[in-house]
Design a protein around this nucleic acid. Sequence first.
DNA 1: AAGAACTGTGTCCCTTGGATACAGATTACT
DNA 2: AGTAATCTGTATCCAAGGGACACAGTTCTT
Lengths: 234, 234
Amino acid sequence: MGYADGKAVALLWGGRGAPRRGPKPTLTLADISAAGIAVADAEGVAAVTMQRVAESLGVTKMALYRYVPGKSELVALMTDAAIGEPPELTGDGWRPRLAEWARRMFAEFWRHPWALETTIGPRVMGPNELSWLDAAIAALDGTGLDGADAMDAAVTIVGHIRMVAQQGVASPADNAEQAMDAAMVELLRGHEADFPALTAALESASRSGKQGRAFEFGLDRILDGIAHLVGTRG
Amino acid sequence: MGYADGKAVALLWGGRGAPRRGPKPTLTLADISAAGIAVADAEGVAAVTMQRVAESLGVTKMALYRYVPGKSELVALMTDAAIGEPPELTGDGWRPRLAEWARRMFAEFWRHPWALETTIGPRVMGPNELSWLDAAIAALDGTGLDGADAMDAAVTIVGHIRMVAQQGVASPADNAEQAMDAAMVELLRGHEADFPALTAALESASRSGKQGRAFEFGLDRILDGIAHLVGTRG
DNA sequence: AAGAACTGTGTCCCTTGGATACAGATTACT
DNA sequence: AGTAATCTGTATCCAAGGGACACAGTTCTT
């Protein structure tokens, strides 16, 4: 693996190129990818096996290997397809645009939580993933930040998006943070003395049903920090 | 799985409780965990199999099941042990303390990159992981931030730490960011028109060998943002 | 002394990713 | 048109990994 896996790059960036002889393929990469995404959305990425995906397409396991060199490439394909293309940003000014970008990206990870697992570690990035990054950098045009600053700012925001998306996974979508707090309180029972600050924080943090608080909180902090930098650079 | 897996909780939080009869166990949970960590550090978490860990301990695979109910619990154990206990923070004031905390935590993830994979998704948190969280919250004592604010601030910082740690994995440790940039430039070759902002940013971002720039950049932004909030709350 | 409880092990089974070989379909070339 | 090249889907086989289960040996309790 690593940043440059030839087969993965070819598949993600070049497709397969229609064959010139032989029978018509019954499937397309898009079909296979969509089938894999459906399985992953429903049962997690661990449930995505060649067998399972093949069944849901009505072919045998080995048929998939005519389209995809191996499972890791299939997962890479699924991941880029699931992330999708970045949206047009409509806000006025860098801050609303970047905020919108962040909320959209968060929504994607929320919809496909398994993508958090498949985008960790060194990997080949697909066109969609790079397009999202490009869109974030573009939103910072005209702020006076240089290329490295813009890249690092985008990376910081993505980190926050991913972190918050993780927390909510596998909780009823409307009270993820409360569920997490409750689980912590449960764990702390009997060990309160060992975690005094955390215990106190959890007691005072009776989050009043405000969904997405953690996300907006961190996003505001980061954007405030970027605004501060933009002010000094300007 | 989920936040409350009884067996995992018992193992992580209660240990095994010495048996009162029968032969002395040859191993301890700490031995097993350490062996697993050694394998994961050297060859990644994918190389951690029951077989492999057992071999490095000089026992058979099935012997491990006397200590650990299954592989997932072993990985949870390894993870909490690898993270270790949080350090004493020596800085003066919340900001230097939180910055030190962040750098220490980053160092742990850097040392055990596989822990990024094993701490994703819903899981049972171990005592060490909660201790780190407790330490971050404690660093924010006296800032006027309430419990929920402090928790969310900590979460935001952890997100950044994890994101940057991810990028550098599997690159020669002294130029991780440059390696990533180079890989992107390679991917963009021939598609520059589709990613104009990103292309421009990469061109201008001749990061002058400054290791860890991305980490310190984002950390500064987030801390600036928190400082801004502390100012308004105070 | 004797039974209870615990440890380490050998054997077996199921699932998964993947290699290989093969039969039928389709197209290009003569 | 006829044939050869090429492509598709499939059946069969293998190795690795997680885990269940039964068994023999060991040590503590009564």
